[in-house]
């Protein structure tokens, strides 16, 4: 199981991480090795075995719909790289 260079570039794009050509090459090699290791799972017969999401038997925990105090806007914005008034400032999402 080995990854093509283009596959690494495609996944990096999906993950929104720009990689240098050296990183692409390194990850291509390392991730291929890891995927090779993962092949061990193909030995397991998992027919009709349900997946486990997490190991505790709790499902869809609900609480009463009561209002509570929340963080003040200035606190929420206190770590924002860019803000304007009570808003996070972002780059233009829609292009011309």
């Amino acid at each position: 199981m080995s990854l093509e260079r283009a596959q690494v570039e495609q996944i990096a794009l999906l993950a929104r991480i720009s990689l240098t050509p050296e990183e692409v090459e390194l990850f291509q090699d390392q991730l291929s090795q890891l995927l090779e290791q993962f092949q061990v799972l193909s030995e397991l017969d998992t027919t009709d075995v349900p997946p486990t999401g997490h190991a505790v038997d709790l499902q869809a925990v609900m609480r009463e719909d009561e209002d509570e105090a929340s963080l003040a806007p200035e606190d929420v914005l206190s770590n924002a790289p860019r803000q304007e008034g009570e808003f996070f400032r972002v780059k233009a999402v829609l292009e011309e």
Partner: peptide
Amino acid sequence: AYYLKAQQARTLIR
């Protein structure tokens, strides 16, 4: 092949 298979393996390990 990967994520679902790993979650099934997780059941077997449990």
